[in-house]
């Protein structure tokens, strides 16, 4: 148990790497000649990959937002060390999501990408969310917290709330017709943001 506790963050990274690892194995099999559908990438592997990475980015982002309320409410302080790896994997998935979209959908062309961002709010929101996560990922180290100062670091990292809102709307705009899945994610994100507005003292008493 002591060993587990000591290596919590390392273990967390290994578990959180699994979705990307599974995807990477499927891609390697496909590139070696397997049929994309047979290895679970569907008949349209590019679209499947972009959706898969986006979905995991949202999942990690929402989980990272759940840590603080659970510490406050349920007093699960042992979750605290998971917040940084969750945030970093949300960023990693978002970065891969954007990279595959940029290279294989926008043909690696910045002018096409810019046109998409300028013309389509759906793309703009996704890009805005990624841009907000970028400084957070870059300042995720202990050293960065020290340099910036805890108070200012905390203020900077509140950008994640805006990133979560943009991400949720981006997902809602992704689907055609009325589909419940993105609304469920948006609902969970909304609850996690709203509980932060409750006074801590009131929450503690409840």
């Amino acid at each position: 148990m002591g060993w587990l506790r000591a290596h919590r963050q390392g273990l967390a990274h290994i578990v959180m790497a699994l979705p990307v690892l599974v995807l990477a194995v499927r891609w390697v099999m496909m590139i070696m000649g397997s049929d994309p559908r047979a290895v679970g990438l569907s008949a349209e592997p590019i679209d499947y990959t972009i959706n898969y990475l986006g979905l995991w980015a949202i999942r990690f982002l929402i989980l990272s937002l759940a840590i603080t309320p659970l510490r406050t409410w349920a007093r699960w302080s042992w979750l605290a060390p998971l917040r940084r790896p969750l945030g970093l994997w949300a960023f990693a998935c978002a970065l891969l999501h954007l990279s595959v979209y940029f290279l294989l959908d926008q043909l690696g062309s910045f002018s096409l990408l810019w046109e998409s961002v300028a013309k389509h709010p759906f793309i703009l929101l996704g890009m805005a969310a990624f841009t907000l996560l970028l400084p957070l990922a870059l300042t995720s180290t202990r050293g960065a917290i020290r340099r910036i100062g805890a108070r200012r670091w905390q203020a900077l990292h509140r950008l994640v709330y805006l990133a979560a809102i943009f991400t949720a709307i981006h997902f809602i705009l992704r689907v055609k017709g009325f589909q419940p899945e993105p609304w469920i994610y948006a609902g969970v994100a909304a609850v996690l943001l709203l509980v932060r507005a409750l006074p801590t003292a009131w929450v503690r008493r409840a």
């Binding site: 590019i46 959908d105 998409s116 013309k119 389509h120």
Partner: peptide, 19 residues
Amino acid sequence: VDHPRWSQARERRIGDWLP
């Protein structure tokens, strides 16, 4: 004429890498 959420200028033929 684009779809409000995405471009209609290109398409990916199923089985292709690039649009």
